[in-house]
C-alpha cells in the first residue's frame, strides 16, 4: 500500500487527520468572527456587505471556500469512520460502566456535540450561505438583521455557539495531544490557547445576535 494511505488508515493517522482538519476549521472561525464583527458597525450593513462581496468575488477566496467545505466533509467522514471503528472494538458492552467517574463530560459528548454542530451548520448555510452564493442575494447584512429580530433564531444560534464551544473544549486540546504536542512543557500553553477557541470565540459570535436583537440593527432590516 502507498505509505500515505497506510498512514492515513492507521489508528494514529486517522486521529491526526481528525486533528488537522479540526484545527484548520477552528482557525477559519477566527476569520469568520472578524468578518461578522463588521455587523456591529452602525452603517446599514455597508461594511459587512462589502466584505461579503469581496469574499464572494475573489477567485482565491472561492477556491479556499471549496477547500474549507472539503475539510468539513473530511472531518465528518473521518469522524464517522472512527466512531464506527471504535464502536466495533467492544462487541459486548458492560453491565455497569462508570466512565463518568474518570472522564470529562465534554469528552464523552463529542459525538453528540458533533451531530448537533452539523445540524446547526446545515441550517446556518441554508439561511445565509445558499442565498449569498446561489440566489444572488447581495444584502446579507439585512438578512442577518432580519433573522435576529426573531427570538427563535437568536436562541437557536446561542445554543449552537454553546455546543460549538463545548465541542472545541475537548476537541482543541485533544488535537494537540493527537499530534504529540501536548507534553508537560506545552500543556499549559495549549490549555491557554484552547480557552480562546472554546470560550472567547463562541462568546464573540454570541454578541452579534444578542446585539441585533436588543439594540436593533440597521434600519434597512425594519423595512424588509
Amino acid at each position: 500500500m502507498n505509505p500515505f494511505f497506510r498512514f492515513i488508515n492507521s489508528s494514529v493517522g486517522k486521529k491526526v487527520l481528525m486533528s488537522l482538519t479540526g484545527i484548520f476549521l477552528a482557525i477559519f472561525l477566527i476569520e469568520h468572527l472578524a468578518g461578522n464583527l463588521l455587523l456591529l458597525k452602525n452603517d446599514n450593513g455597508e461594511a459587512f456587505n462589502g466584505f461579503a462581496k469581496f469574499m464572494g468575488g475573489n477567485p482565491v477566496v472561492r477556491i479556499l471556500e471549496v477547500g474549507l467545505l472539503s475539510l468539513v466533509l473530511l472531518h465528518i467522514f473521518n469522524g464517522t469512520r472512527l466512531w464506527l471503528g471504535n464502536r466495533s472494538a467492544r462487541d459486548k458492552g458492560y453491565g455497569a460502566y462508570r466512565l463518568d467517574e474518570n472522564t470529562t463530560l465534554q469528552s464523552r459528548m463529542m459525538k453528540i456535540s458533533a451531530a448537533l454542530v452539523f445540524v446547526f451548520l446545515t441550517v446556518h448555510m441554508k439561511k445565509f450561505w445558499v442565498p449569498a452564493r446561489f440566489q444572488g442575494e447581495h444584502d446579507i447584512a439585512s438578512l442577518v438583521y432580519y433573522t435576529f429580530q426573531q427570538p427563535f433564531y437568536v436562541i437557536f444560534y446561542l445554543a449552537a455557539f454553546f455546543i460549538l464551544g463545548y465541542h472545541l473544549r475537548h476537541g482543541f486540546q485533544s488535537a494537540f495531544q493527537t499530534m504529540g504536542f501536548r507534553t508537560k512543557r506545552y500543556q499549559s500553553l495549549i490549555e491557554f490557547v484552547a480557552v480562546l477557541f472554546w470560550l472567547v470565540l463562541p462568546l464573540g459570535f454570541a454578541v452579534i445576535p444578542l446585539y441585533i436583537y436588543f439594540f436593533g440593527g440597521s434600519p434597512v432590516a425594519v423595512v424588509q
Binding site: G85, N86, A89, L99, T104, S107, H170, Q177
Partner: peptide
C-alpha cells in the same frame, strides 16, 4: 483495538 479519543480514562 479502537482509536484513542483522548478521554484519558
Amino acid at each position: 483495538f479502537g482509536s484513542c479519543s483522548n478521554t484519558y480514562a
